[in-house]
Design a protein around this nucleic acid. Structure first.
Lengths: 158, 158
DNA sequence: CAAATAGTTTAGCCTTGGCTAACAATTATT
DNA sequence: AATAATTGTTAGCCAAGGCTAAACTATTTG
């Protein structure tokens, strides 16, 4: 027998930290994180490809490899996946391009990324740190929080 | 040839979003995220075990499984890893306990988690959302940002 | 106390996302 | 044009973190 939510918490439980959330809610937190992890890498690739296309006019596998600090083989394998998912089109030794759907994903991802990054800067975080944190955080920020971050940034940085 | 940082950006690059960071910095962002992912799950387990011990007095594999929404087999395997890492002690069919080191990790993790959670609430995020976002974000927030979040929370919520 | 229920472990499978090494194709240089 | 350098692909390896099914242990209950 375990995890009887109905029994009152022992007195020690208020010494520090919040109470444990009910099991279902707690479980949902972890599930949300696991789901985010599944899409995270895909979104990172697509977002980076979008950025490269926008800033450089082309997105080569080699650029992705060096910017992600990952081997070319890894990138090659990943591109095959992105292809199968219908997010990019690729011809060997040519620049990658995003499909309609890939483009949409890149835009959404970049928008989210920008909001988090600008929010952190508005909060007072140094640029380099803000960039690192934003990269990690962006996939875990809900729309609700995102909206609040955006409002905050607008108010605190004219 | 690709990724010549020295050539001036084409005019289109200022249409939206920030400029691309230099390759080394960009690479470091992704590396930091990858490293975070490696420790993330470990920390989540250890933190949860700490919470269960604190709030319930014991931490059983079954509780962890239901709170993480994961099979008992997965938990069992993970506990073996935590054991090898010297973070928990376990005897079959008995509650888990944290080692000295595990306890330290749990505390650090919980502290970070709390700061992020309270910060989000102070920002105006609803409790349920804040909990979900905090769970995902906590492993990607640098000490610098954490400190800023804490100051913010103190100021905005006495 | 025997049987049922709950908790735990083990074995074996799968997918992801890394890697290196070897090879192929393209592009650049001499 | 030949060679060198860069870029890309493929094959095959590994660890992590899920899963189910089956077996075993402990606890609760009839």
């Amino acid at each position: 027998m375990s995890d009887h939510e109905q029994q009152p918490l022992p007195p020690t439980s208020r010494l520090s930290g919040d109470a444990l959330p009910p099991v279902e809610q707690h479980a949902q937190q972890y599930e949300t994180v696991r789901n985010a992890h599944e899409t995270e890498l895909i979104e990172d690739y697509v977002e980076l490809i979008g950025d490269l296309l926008r800033h450089r006019g082309e997105a080569r596998a080699a650029d992705i490899a060096s910017r992600m600090a990952v081997s070319q083989a890894t990138v090659s394998k990943m591109i095959r996946r992105l292809n199968e998912l219908g997010l990019v089109t690729s011809r060997p030794y040519r620049s990658l391009f995003l499909t309609e759907e890939g483009h949409k994903m890149a835009e959404t991802s970049r928008a989210r990324h920008d909001i988090v990054l600008h929010f952190l800067r508005a909060l007072g975080v140094r640029d380099t740190t803000a960039r690192i944190d934003a990269e990690g955080m962006e996939h875990h920020v809900s729309d609700e929080t995102l909206a609040i971050m955006q409002r905050f940034t607008e108010k605190h940085q004219p």
